[in-house]
């Protein structure tokens, strides 16, 4: 599983590179090569590294380990078909990682990035409503049982389309340069990442790569069912490209507007969940 882990990390970084390239091409820029993010990670790993004088040392370094660790765990859960709740629990806890990254250094930019990341925690709530809807349909939240259900009843993509939309919005809010990526907005320099340079940043890139793979793969597993590996890879690339289109043509929202929109989506999803609850369960 170690080899898969490293491959997943590299593939995630490649997807992020594709994301940047597609956005650039839509905006008529040449853009970086698609392997740029992998080069980034490699480059940062060779940089001189220390801990800033004002930082809270143990937290500053420890949070990098936590970041990589939680997504390694999420990868394991996904590969073994564990509970969807765990994956999305880890996904929500990624907020804390961003928050700790931002606050541990003492830098004002990092702090604002961290505070924004906390504000936007509301964006994760549609996720839980859609998870609940999936649970209502399939009667389980184990990935293996969900895919088994789909093998019988057809993909959830058509059965639970509003949940797909909500989940897609959640994915969008995690992609860089999107309308909801207020934590990485450029007026914050690099947001929560500002002070994590060198090896720490490389660790964060590893985490980002894993995160992208796990999230996109989970999305496909949940809504399209178990696919062959090649189709999985193609599906993830297509998903990335569609996300890039959404990111490229939309401006970034102001922080509280972004939260409000996501809360409204949550409200809509709650209504939908209510309808499913009364309809599916007699």
């Amino acid at each position: 599983m170690i080899a898969e882990l490293v491959l997943a990390m590299l593939f995630g970084l490649l997807l992020l590179g594709i994301h940047r390239k597609v956005i650039a091409r839509i905006q008529r820029r040449p853009g970086p090569p698609v392997w740029q993010e992998i080069l980034h990670a490699a480059k940062f790993s060779f940089k001189t590294t220390w801990v800033p004088a004002t930082a809270s040392g143990a937290l500053f370094a420890g949070i990098v380990l936590v970041a990589v660790g939680i997504w390694t765990a999420a990868f394991f859960v996904m590969m073994t078909g564990g509970s969807l709740l765990i994956i999305f629990g880890i996904y929500m806890l990624h907020k804390i990682v961003e928050h700790a990254f931002g606050l541990s250094s003492g830098s004002p930019y990092g702090k604002f990035g961290g505070v924004r990341s906390v504000i936007s925690a509301a964006s994760e709530i549609p996720l839980f409503v859609s998870v609940a809807v999936i649970g209502l349909f399939t009667g389980s939240l184990e990935l293996t049982e969900i895919t088994a259900w789909e093998a019988v009843h057809g993909p959830l993509f058509f059965t639970a389309f509003p949940a797909v939309v909500a989940m897609y919005l959640v994915l969008l809010s995690k992609m860089p340069f999107g309308p909801f990526s207020i934590v990485e907005s450029k007026e914050l320099v690099s947001g929560y990442k500002t002070e994590h340079f060198g090896a720490w940043r490389a660790g964060l890139e590893v985490c980002n790569g894993l995160k992208t793979t796990v999230l996109l793969a989970t999305f496909l597993l949940v809504f399209a069912g178990q696919l062959p590996v090649l189709w999985m890879v193609i599906g993830m690339i297509l998903l990335t490209v569609s996300l890039s289109f959404a990111c490229a043509v939309t401006p970034m929202l102001s922080p509280f507007d972004s939260v409000t929109i996501q809360s409204l989506v949550t409200a809509l999803m709650l209504v939908y969940a209510g309808i499913v609850f009364t309809g599916v369960l007699p």
């Binding site: 102001s254 509280f256 507007d257 939260v259 409000t260 929109i261 409204l264």
Partner: peptide, 11 residues
């Protein structure tokens, strides 16, 4: 309306 809601929420 979204902007008005978020202006209300941010205090």
């Amino acid at each position: 309306i979204i902007r008005r809601i978020s202006h209300y929420l941010c205090r």
